[in-house]
Design a protein around this nucleic acid. Sequence first.
DNA 1: CGGTGGGTTGAGGTATTTCAAGGCTCGTGG
DNA 2: CCACGAGCCTTGAAATACCTCAACCCACCG
Lengths: 223, 223
Amino acid sequence: MFVNVNAHPGSKPKALGELGQLSRARIILSEFKYDRGTEIYGQDEPAEYIYQVIEGAVRSHKLLSDGRRQIGAFHLNGDIFGLENGAEHRFTAEAIVDTTVRLTKRCSLEHVAESDAQVALDLLSMTTSNLQHAEDHMLLLGRKTSLERVAAFLLEMDRRLSAAGVMALPMCRRDIADYLGLTLETVSRALSQLHSKGILGFLGQTQRQIVLRDRERLADLDL
Amino acid sequence: MFVNVNAHPGSKPKALGELGQLSRARIILSEFKYDRGTEIYGQDEPAEYIYQVIEGAVRSHKLLSDGRRQIGAFHLNGDIFGLENGAEHRFTAEAIVDTTVRLTKRCSLEHVAESDAQVALDLLSMTTSNLQHAEDHMLLLGRKTSLERVAAFLLEMDRRLSAAGVMALPMCRRDIADYLGLTLETVSRALSQLHSKGILGFLGQTQRQIVLRDRERLADLDL
DNA sequence: CGGTGGGTTGAGGTATTTCAAGGCTCGTGG
DNA sequence: CCACGAGCCTTGAAATACCTCAACCCACCG
């Protein structure tokens, strides 16, 4: 089921630091690959593992019974996800593109945390980061206009995955929409609007590579 | 500044259990009262204390620069709030009604957690509860209709503060609206609609005491 | 008694959704 | 090599859920 690969020094130092500490605690790390579009775990499944993105991108979402979807977070290079306190996952996680993750058994980690305060504090710190993101996202979802949401999204992605001033979005418009609580058409219109105002530009013909031409005016839209 | 009162056995066993454990760790607890409408702490202020509601109700909110407000949570009897990992509060907290809180210094708690894994795990558990609530709330704010939001709100409040089948809401319509990402008029209309359908009833003339007459049909609205 | 702070309700406006059409890219198979 | 369909994105037009503005009611209180 799981392919064991030699763990190689990761690409994103910050979050790796966190899992690095866990690694110090002698927890088994292995790597695994998921094809684009496949489910990594489902909502309400027992949370057996926690994950770190080595390469690729993952989305975590909840569904309403009639299919409406809310994406709670995107997990990019170096991010840790799947960390739940209870026994079950509270989101469904899917690979957005072909993705490599590093994973470790949740129970062994939990066991270590019971005696090692430092590990427990690491877990707390990770959970707090997630909480902070969720809190900010509630404000966005509850009170921001579509343009403000898209602007905030672009700034977040710029911060998290921009290389050389250009960001290559791994996710499609529908994913962005379900993250921002909008429809894909509204997201598309907002992007077009920002484009026509010269605030951003598209590279290539896929519309997924975006360069921010006027970060200042974009930030003005992010209240 | 702070009035020290004898800590008496609290009213809500569950959350008290948590602070109870912290108490075991020899952390100073004192009580303090806030008048209705007063600020307990402000966003971006240093997080000196953490709090537990003994009596009353508190709202935590974020503001956009133009005054739009999003309430992230209501804190009712027994709830712990003001727990931040960073040095600063991420919300403004205000007493909705006259409120008594128990409080303890954050730094001393943090200090204990550094060596005591059990305390650190308690903090983790509390943070995880907050995270879980925020995750569910993102789904509500991003994807539910006004009627579904109000139904979910009523069920949440019913669960958290219903006594003898009737809930006495401490907060006004505007607070509910800012919690649900709606306007107060929309909340009022949704409640009227549920009232006219016989799903809920009002007691007294303040419109703040609500009795759920058909929890089944209300739950149908909560997808 | 008048003012203030809630709450409800109606009418009209609007941001966003819904529905629909069309274009572009890319992979696959003839 | 080209045709074709699928997936993704954009754009327009119409529908609608929610917001805004406004009037009114009621309870409370100095």
